[in-house]
């Protein structure tokens, strides 16, 4: 038996204490520090989320995941509220259902959710009637929302429900920003910012209903600090941010998820070894992502991995490899 001079292993942390509490009448025991949402998932209780992602710091902004904690004045965001011993939680009380329904209606009446996966089912499940707030107001002109002054707004038009509608922004060849579809979940800002990429090309600007995702002075992306890693696209829950090929194929009606295969491989560039999930349709790569749970990438890539595979696409450049078939 050899001994070591000092401990060389990773310092072990004190084991987390278990705590017991109740969800919908069921007793649950989890480790200290577990969120209500995580606890719910361990016992198979589904809670809808929009702004939550395992790889990002919770911002508690969408409020879709609220639950009722007995004795609390207001509902609690399950994505970030940690469980406490003896807590009594209801995930489907009338208050919870009401809040979720209204949140969904608020979003559906003000944002284009047509490309949000699972949203149609959710709206049906919660019996939402977004049309009751009035017909959606026609889209704002380009730049109009960017020009709002904090603390000021025009009086409402009684014939319409206000929306965040505005023209699609296509200012580069790699991806498209359609902020008419933005629910302001903050995920793209967090992914671009301190949580992952630390490029801070975008932030939330303005406030209230005019809060919006913006570059400095709302300049086009090529004039911003954007490095086109596309890590914002990877976390966008609504399709407001979309890679150009997907956007174009959807516009042309040729985007067909059923016809796509997804294969995990390793990025061909530097030696970090990022897992690339290649989405292939008709032998053409139509999208590259990385698994969120990958310990190296946490779903992130750089511009080369996310977009730099044109050279293996069918077409003239690849054909050149065969020009001198030996």
């Amino acid at each position: 038996m050899t001994t070591t001079l000092i401990s060389i292993e990773r310092p072990t942390r004190a084991p987390k204490k278990p705590l017991a509490f109740t969800i919908d009448g069921r007793a649950v025991t989890v480790e200290e520090g577990t969120t209500i949402l995580a606890a719910c998932r361990t016992i198979g209780i589904e809670i809808p989320t929009l702004c939550f992602l395992e790889t990002l710091r919770p911002v508690n902004a969408c409020r879709l995941c609220v639950v009722e904690v007995e004795g609390a004045r207001v509902l609690a965001p399950s994505c970030s509220r940690t469980a406490e011993a003896g807590m009594v939680v209801y995930t489907k009380s009338a208050r919870v259902i009401h809040a979720r329904r209204l949140v969904l209606e608020f979003l559906a009446s003000s944002v284009d959710l047509s490309t949000t996966p699972g949203m149609a089912e959710l709206l049906a499940e919660y019996d939402c009637k977004p049309e009751r707030y009035g017909p959606p107001k026609p889209h704002a002109l380009a730049g109009e929302r960017d020009a709002a002054i904090a603390g000021h707004h025009a009086a409402p038009d009684p014939d319409f429900a206000a929306t965040v509608g505005q023209p699609v922004m296509v200012d580069n060849d790699l991806y498209v920003r359609d902020y008419a579809k933005c629910v302001l979940c903050y995920k793209c800002v967090e992914a671009c910012g301190a949580d992952h990429q630390n490029s801070f090309a975008i932030a939330v600007a303005g406030r209230g209903f005019n809060a919006r995702i913006s570059t400095e002075m709302a300049v086009p992306l090529p004039d911003s600090a954007c490095v086109y890693c596309g890590n914002c696209i990877a976390v966008c829950p609504t399709g407001a941010l979309m890679a150009k090929p997907e956007f174009d194929m959807r516009a042309a009606g040729s985007w067909n998820i059923e016809a796509q295969t997804t294969t995990d491989t390793i990025c061909p560039y530097c030696g970090v070894g990022c897992t690339l999930s290649l989405h292939v349709q008709d032998n053409t790569i139509v999208k590259a992502t990385s698994p969120l749970e990958n310990s190296i990438t946490l779903g992130n890539l750089c511009v080369k991995g996310r977009f730099g595979w044109q050279y293996v696409q069918p077409g003239p450049s690849a054909d050149s490899a065969t020009t001198r078939d030996g």
């Binding site: 995990d264 491989t265 390793i266 030696g271 070894g273 290649l278 190296i296």
Partner: peptide, 23 residues
């Protein structure tokens, strides 16, 4: 080799990982 063939590569933390034929 990284998307039209199978194999392995090793990264800078000595992690051997699979590459797979995707197309």
């Amino acid at each position: 080799s990284w998307c039209e063939a199978d194999g392995t590569v090793t990264n800078s933390e000595r992690r051997v990982q699979r590459v797979r034929k995707a197309k």
